[in-house]
Design a protein around this nucleic acid. Structure first.
Lengths: 152, 152
DNA sequence: ATTGAAACTGCAACATT
DNA sequence: AATGTTGCAGTTTCAAT
């Protein structure tokens, strides 16, 4: 953990919205020279605060109009069950994220599909056959809003 | 929606892992010239398939070690209730994502906090006081695995 | 698809405060 | 310790072939 000043936070806020911003453009906005802004970005990257840069793909543009969150309760728990479940879930192409959670469910899966008919196929042939899967609860995503979140 | 060939998919797969890859490096890997790779990236961006580039922040490095998924059932529904709930939830700094869903819950919130004591504060003073919030169910995240997902 | 060229960016070295 | 200036290699972003 690292302590950030107001300038660092402004940089993170800007890069969260658009990681393609150049150090020069960032410096211009914050009143820094290009190398000064660049050095701060490098420092944030090397310290691990910035852990990567990813492109965001538009699922709809790719033909995947349906996103569903699944809560999964395992029927059998234990070291082997968790590993096996995670390995099998990772192998399903439509699964975008696997979250191991504590609470009413054991896992939370984010699944995408072309449409509801396609989702039913994934659910029946892939999800319900996952090793150890007991109760499964589904929530179809209608819309999603991503927020900046706290920076320290 | 746009149709992609195998090369486009390889580009998306590579950029999903690391958006900082240059067009030259991408071309080298795929057997394309630098401008050819660059043109494909631009085409994918202009068509909306690539909808943005974001930095990934390490929550733990920022001092937020706890991530909780909340399922929220509204007590009162209707146009106004949804708008009001979303507006109030957006104003909570610890809320990272607001997902409007169909199913057992009406909303799914991704919330981060410094620790469990901090999370309790957020839950009691911010979440439970959200307008219209009825039942709230929580799942504490233990680990998360993000997968490439299907590309068409 | 390749080449060439202008503008910009990333990155290092050095000086300043 | 953080900044600014200079300078160069590499990249982006075009146009031309």
């Amino acid at each position: 953990m690292m302590d950030l000043d107001e300038t660092d936070r402004a940089i993170l806020r800007a890069l969260r919205a658009d990681a393609a911003l150049s150090a020069g453009e960032l410096g211009r906005r914050l009143g820094l020279s290009q190398p000064a802004a660049w050095r701060r970005i490098r420092r944030l990257t090397e310290s691990g605060v910035i852990s990567g840069r990813r492109v965001v793909l538009d699922r709809e543009a790719l033909g995947f109009g349906v996103t569903v969150f699944l809560g999964v309760k395992l029927a059998t728990k234990g070291r082997v069950s968790l590993d096996e479940f995670e390995r099998a879930a990772s192998a399903i192409p439509e699964v975008q994220a696997i979250e191991h959670v504590l609470g009413l469910f054991d896992y939370r899966l984010k699944v995408v599909a072309r449409d509801l008919a396609d989702f039913e196929r994934v659910l029946r042939r892939r999800i319900m056959t996952l090793p150890g899967a007991g109760n499964v609860e589904a929530n179809v995503m209608l819309s999603e809003e991503r927020l900046p979140g706290p920076l320290g």
